[in-house]
Amino acid sequence: MNFLALFARNLTKGPYTEPFPFAPAPTAKRFRGKIEFDAETCEGCRLCERVCPAGAIRMTRTAEGMTFDCWHDSCVFCGNCEFHCPTKSIHQTADWHLAHTQDQKFLMVEHALIPNQICAECGKEALATAPATRTVTPPLSPTETQHLKALCPKCRAKFIRARKAAA
């Protein structure tokens, strides 16, 4: 290798390093970074909690519903949760800005609540999770999905059964 040529090339190209933090560092679109959770579309199957190798995800039943917590400090950014989540309600963003001071370490949490609701049919209290509708044929219409979401698991199953019988 001609090191003089290399030297000239490096001189004209300028530094290879990024000027971060004085300018934004380019980040790949597919970069597997900080976890984001969407309580609206989550089915509450808790698969993400089970497949997480780091034990970073915890879902807990409380009086208000079911809480979701993902501790960014425990997460190893493997993407198992996203891969196994049936609805992709949990996913990795390209955000890697997770540096924080020591006193912030227990606050680095993605927190959300799937609230309880009163079933529109039977009036019982149940979680307002998104209904699992992927295997239903023919596919549900948006209004049907909306209706299903307002029901408790028992009434949802009843609805699906009735629909199947009618079809």
Binding site: K29, F77, Q92
Partner: peptide
């Protein structure tokens, strides 16, 4: 570093490809 950038772009991480 070209290979590292390639890994980040295609797999989302520089070392653990997943």
């Amino acid at each position: 570093e070209i290979a590292q950038d390639l890994k980040e772009g295609v797999f989302g991480n520089r070392m653990d490809l997943g």
